[in-house]
């Protein structure tokens, strides 16, 4: 199935990506090519087939609830582009402060 330019624009919003007009055109073309190829899957009879989300049949791996060493605050903040002594800093969420 091809994808329209409008759909690509909407998906870019969901994926938090910005594209120029030229990039949007190119992305629409390339994604359409790829998605048309994916139509191949439609011919496979998957009636009653259980989806396989994972290669291993393991679930709910628990460990004892015990305290273990973890990153200290300074190490966790060390890579932050904007920070103060104890927090990550982000632009104001609710308008100007």
């Amino acid at each position: 199935m091809p994808i329209s330019r409008e759909q690509v624009e909407k998906v870019s919003l969901l994926g938090r990506l910005l594209f120029s007009d030229n990039e949007l055109d190119k992305m629409t073309c390339q994604l359409s090519d790829i998605l048309e190829y994916m139509d191949l899957l439609a011919e496979v009879d998957t009636e009653g087939v259980e989806p396989m989300a994972h290669a291993l049949d393991i679930s709910d791996v628990f460990r004892d609830d015990e305290v273990r060493p973890s990153l200290d605050r300074e190490a966790a903040l060390a890579g932050a582009p904007h920070r103060d002594d104890e927090c990550y800093l982000v632009p104001a969420v609710l308008g100007e402060l």
Binding site: L41, A42, V44, E50, M52
Partner: peptide, 8 residues
């Protein structure tokens, strides 16, 4: 659909 094909 892809996950089902993965199983197959």
């Amino acid at each position: 659909k892809a996950l089902k094909v993965r199983r197959l």
